[in-house]
Write a protein that binds this DNA or RNA. Structure first.
Lengths: 228, 228
DNA sequence: GGTACCAATTTTGGAGTCAATATGGGCCCG
DNA sequence: CGGGCCCATATTGACTCCAAAATTGGTACC
């Protein structure tokens, strides 16, 4: 049953690889919101069969990252300010709750790794391209999420982050925010190291930047009710 | 342009209908966890083409309600105690956060409707089949969720609830829980009517019952101080 | 009597093909 | 000169068919 046939794993990973490749290009800004994703273009762009493209697109539709219009094809989901703010609130809820479970779970090696990723991001902010900054940021947060023991929660957070279409790219250029992000990362590691749960959670929440306008009325209060 | 072609809408709804039909049968216990979902069976069971069955199955896989094994087909996702508990925590997080946003948004008509659905559930508990109870419960919670202004959050909650495989059916029969659920529903409406946010949120959290047995080993240590 | 092997059947996965529909340009008419 | 209609093209969506793989049942052997 659970053998390890390379062909099977390869095929399965290949499908997911295509899916994440398209998602990556969307986040990188190569496929701006509203762009029509013609199957034939993707087919030759990624060198895959049409069926694979179609299945990957369907998965992306299930994640609401792309939109399907009957008999017109798929297109990158246009970003709606309302939806963007709702997504931000969802991230606040999920990542805030996850933060509660993370403090105290990092050993020395993990702390060192996180510190390294935080400094890598700082360096990227100074000397590298925006795309590299994006990568470094994702790497840091990916590692951070490994501390959360709730696999389902982690999956949900990953999906929620994935669902934010091109948000980073369009708003990062504002000088000052990236640098603040870098400081946030280091502060998170500091709090983790000190075992200061409140500081850590506060930093995680502060890190989720408000989208353009701040409708304070819709803010959710609520600290996480999660069991350890 | 955007004419009103019944074919398009019908086709789109038809696909989703098949998807929800399968999900419904899974929740109803007709397709227990671990069951192999042979495409040909579903094809003749729901009277749909194989392509439709496949696409619906893929969507269900994306929602982690069914599992796909290469060259062996799809099967209902087996319920793992660990995963079930993680899902419960996720529901606590999401529904608890949603509850915070609901108080004060219900007008008189909505309150009356909720009250009616709560009593309908109570009646179902007394006089109807388990399946009817399940339906009544879903109807109440569906209506309740309409109070949440965050559409993305609502979607996430619906998906999370959908992802719980057959949990209600397998554990509801324990006499006492269903009746407590009915009381919970009425208490929620009471709190909503009184505008008592804390009471409402507490009730929502209490309503998310702990998963059957608590495998202390699987717990991430720490007593789960769920609800209050 | 139990076990291991082998063949037949069933089921999946994918590719190819074909009809239906939207898009864009050109043409005709006002 | 501007607007509306019609047709050619390209793209999508669905059905069908075929090969590959796994499961099942049977049989022979130990």
């Amino acid at each position: 049953m659970a053998k390890s046939p390379p062909a099977d794993v390869a095929a399965e990973d290949a499908l997911r690889a295509l899916e994440t490749a398209i998602a990556h290009d969307i986040h990188a800004g190569l496929l701006p919101p509203g762009t029509w994703l013609k199957q034939i273009d993707l087919q030759e762009r990624y060198g895959r069969s049409r069926g694979d493209v179609r299945r990957a697109l369907d998965k992306l539709v299930a994640q609401r990252l792309v939109q399907q219009v009957r008999n017109s094809g798929y297109r990158v989901h246009p970003l709606d300010p309302q939806r963007l703010d709702e997504l931000r609130q969802v991230r606040l809820i999920l990542e805030g709750a996850a933060a509660e479970t993370m403090v105290g779970r990092a050993d020395a090696a993990m702390l060192a790794r996180l510190r390294g990723l935080a400094t890598a991001f700082s360096l990227a902010v100074e000397h590298r391209s925006i795309l590299d900054q994006h990568e470094a940021n994702q790497a840091f947060h990916r590692a951070l999420l490994e501390l959360c023991p709730n696999a389902e929660l982690v999956r949900l957070i990953r999906e929620a982050r994935l669902r934010m279409p091109s948000a980073p790219m369009s708003q990062w250029p504002e000088r000052g925010w990236v640098e603040e992000s870098a400081r946030h990362h280091h502060a998170m590691v500091d709090a983790l190291e000190a075992g200061d749960r409140d500081a850590f959670c506060a930093m995680v929440r502060a890190h989720i930047r408000p989208t353009g306008r701040i409708p304070a009325a819709a803010m959710v209060r609520a600290p996480a009710p999660i069991a350890d």
